[in-house]
Every structure is written in structure tokens, then in C-alpha cells.
């Protein structure tokens, strides 16, 4: 019991510190890294409660995929923009938000700690957690029997999400390129402009400058027939 208490306290500190970091730090990259700390802490708590498979999935999916996605988008949009926390567009929103958060916390704590019994309800209606069978087996058995429809709908949800993401970030035909990334147009535009400038210069030179016989020779061949 002491070991579990120690584990819980350390993981809880990591979780709360990370959560506060997500909310309070100004740099977006630091926010994402604090989120990783919280996710790791929660994975540790999963493991302390015997949900080994979920702890692994938590680390792989959240820390490995979702936070990396966040970091990709942060890098894509530019990291140099630190958020200005001083301005308050709606007057008194921040204090109201903090009060609302404290109210949420207070209500949950009262609901949790008021009664003598925290956990009520029927136990083990789906399938009991036993330590004899690995939890992956138990999860798989329940997932593919009792929750098989929800599981199938999950597949549809993921497909819709992928298609939606592709449609959202697709550039339609007439739309200009990123003005953020290429302030003076894309590389293709720049090359075309350069070529036009050179052509103009050549034309000017042909009109104004003294032209020797050698310069005209290629044209002469074309003109003759």
C-alpha cells in the first residue's frame, strides 16, 4: 500500500504540474511538452491501477501521436508567436473563468467526499477484472462481444475524421498559394518574373544598344524562309 501511495503522489505531482504548465506557460511548445508530462503521469496511474494495456496505449497514442501532431502544427504555423496574456477582450472573463473552474472543482469534491461511500453501483456487470487473465485478453473479449457495434462505429468515425482533415486542408483550384510562407509569391512566380524581366532587358538591348552581326544571326535564319 505504501508503494502505491508513493507512486500515486509522485504521479499526481507530475500530472498537476503538467496541467498547470499547459494552462499557464506562454510558449506553445512548452504547453505541448507540459501536456506530455501530464499524459505520462496518467499512464503511470493507469499502470498503478492494473490497466497495463491502457497505459501502453496512452503513451503510444497520446504522447507518440497526438502531441507530435500538435508539435507539427505548431511548427507549421510558426513558433515565434508568444501569446500575450495581458489583454482581456471580454471584460472580467478571466476571473469569471477561474471562479467557474473553482466551482467545478468544489462541486466534484463535495459530490465525491460528502458521502461515506464514494463508489456506488453494481460491481462487475460486464466482466470482472481478474488478475489471472491478462488485461489485454479481457479487454479484447469485451470489446468484440458486448461493445462490437461501438467498435465498428469507431472505424467509421476514424475514416470520417481522416477524410474531413484532407478536405479541410486541401487547396481549391483558384485559391492563391500560402501568402504566409512566400511573401513575394512562390518560387515558380519568382522565376517567371525574373524571366520576364530578362526578356524585357533583352528587348531593350535589342532596340537601343548597338547590335553586331553575330547577335542577329540566329534570328536571321528564322526570318529568311
Amino acid at each position: 500500500m505504501r508503494v502505491e501511495m508513493f507512486t500515486f503522489l509522485v504521479a499526481a505531482m507530475i500530472c498537476l504540474g503538467g496541467a498547470l504548465g499547459v494552462v499557464l506557460l506562454r510558449n506553445t511548445v512548452h504547453n505541448a511538452l507540459s501536456l506530455v508530462a501530464t499524459l505520462f503521469g496518467i499512464a503511470v496511474l493507469f499502470m498503478a491501477q492494473g490497466a497495463y494495456f491502457l497505459a501502453a496505449v496512452q503513451v503510444i497514442v497520446y504522447a507518440g501521436a497526438i502531441v507530435i501532431l500538435f508539435l507539427f502544427v505548431i511548427m507549421l504555423l510558426g513558433v515565434d508567436r508568444a501569446t500575450k496574456m495581458g489583454v482581456d477582450p471580454i471584460v472580467g472573463q478571466r476571473p469569471a473563468a477561474v471562479i467557474a473552474g473553482l466551482a467545478i472543482l468544489g462541486m466534484s469534491l463535495v459530490a465525491l467526499l460528502a458521502g461515506p461511500e464514494v463508489v456506488t453501483g453494481a460491481s462487475g456487470t460486464t466482466a470482472a477484472v481478474t488478475s489471472e487473465v491478462p488485461d489485454v485478453n479481457q479487454l479484447g473479449r469485451v470489446l468484440f462481444t458486448d461493445y462490437v457495434f461501438a467498435f465498428e462505429i469507431t472505424a467509421i468515425l476514424l475514416t470520417v475524421a481522416v477524410v474531413g482533415a484532407v478536405v479541410l486542408v486541401r487547396r481549391s483550384a483558384g485559391e492563391p498559394e500560402d501568402s504566409d510562407e512566400f511573401p513575394e509569391g512562390t518560387a515558380a512566380d519568382e522565376l517567371a518574373a525574373q524571366r520576364a524581366l530578362e526578356d524585357e532587358w533583352d528587348d531593350d538591348a535589342a532596340v537601343d544598344g548597338p547590335t553586331g552581326e553575330d547577335d542577329l544571326e540566329p534570328y536571321a535564319e528564322e526570318v529568311e524562309p
Binding site: A12, C15, L16, V22, Q93, A96, A100, G101, I104, V118
Partner: peptide, 18 residues
């Protein structure tokens, strides 16, 4: 565990608002 979860939830809710 439930109290810890409530605290993390409240921090997240406040962050979402501010």
C-alpha cells in the same frame, strides 16, 4: 484518484476558458 481527476479536469476547464 477521483479527486486528482477532478483537479485535472478543473485546470483543463479553466485553461479552455482563459
Amino acid at each position: 484518484y477521483l479527486v486528482l481527476a477532478a483537479m485535472i479536469f478543473a485546470i483543463g476547464a479553466v485553461g479552455l476558458l482563459i
